[in-house]
Amino acid sequence: MSETMYYHLQTKPLEQALPQLLAATLKRGWKAVVMTGETGRVEALTEHLWSYEEDSFLPHGNAKDGNAELQPIWFTDQDENPNQAEVLFLVDSAESQNLNSYTRVCRIFNGNDDHAVQQARLAWKTENEAGRALTYWQQTEQGAWTKKADANTKESS
């Protein structure tokens, strides 16, 4: 069974945190699907990766670009895995019925949005009851990630 990592955004927005997480994913040799709950966000996030840092590049695409099987990072608003990715990033309240087809699922949610926090809590409860391996990460003031809880060991800090 795959693991789910919850990323609680507090100080940096998704547009700053996501490229860092995607870069770490590619560094491991994994492919990623980024699934958003809003159609318009697919193109916005895709475009953002072209300019998020002047000297960085993360290879990526979406349905507009085509050739999904060749893309290490695939942006979509559909519950799909056309590039055979190992990691699924769920952003903007996106939900997937295929969590177990990934090695890792990363749920990224805005801690300043009460609705997003409630959705994350409900997803944690549901996934925990299903026996999934869960960890909860929270941003520090500097934007780094600190592990705050692990559902399997009942560890929390």
Rank of each mutant, 00 (worst) to 15 (best):
Y7A: 03
W124A: 10
Q71S: 06
E47C: 00
L21E: 10
A151T: 00
Q84W: 00
N62D: 12
A44G: 03
E54L: 14
A116S: 15
Q78S: 13
T153A: 13
V33H: 05
Q78P: 08
L88Q: 11
N100H: 07
L18D: 08
M5N: 12
E15M: 05
S2C: 03
Y102D: 13
Q142Y: 08
E141Q: 12
D77H: 05
F89P: 13
R104C: 05
M5D: 10
A123C: 05
V87M: 04
R104S: 04
M35E: 11
V34K: 11
D77L: 00
F75I: 07
K147T: 02
Q71A: 04
F57K: 08
L9S: 08
P13C: 00
K125V: 00
Y6F: 15
W145R: 11
Y7S: 02
G143N: 02
E38K: 13
E43P: 00
F75N: 06
Y136S: 08
M35F: 05
W137G: 03
L18P: 07
D77Y: 00
R104W: 03
S101Q: 15
H8C: 08
Q84A: 14
P19A: 11
N83H: 03
K154R: 15
K147R: 14
L99H: 11
V105A: 11
I73L: 12
G66C: 01
A24L: 06
L90D: 01
Y136N: 07
R41Q: 14
E3M: 11
K64A: 14
L70Y: 15
A63F: 01
V105N: 15
L18C: 06
A130S: 12
N128C: 03
V117N: 07
T103V: 03
S156W: 12
F89A: 12
L14G: 02
K154C: 08
A123D: 10
W124L: 09
P13W: 00
F89Q: 13
H8Q: 12
T36N: 12
A24K: 14
T146K: 12
A120L: 06
A44K: 13
Y52T: 11
S2E: 03
N98L: 02
A149W: 07
A130Q: 15
H8I: 06
G61A: 11
L134H: 02
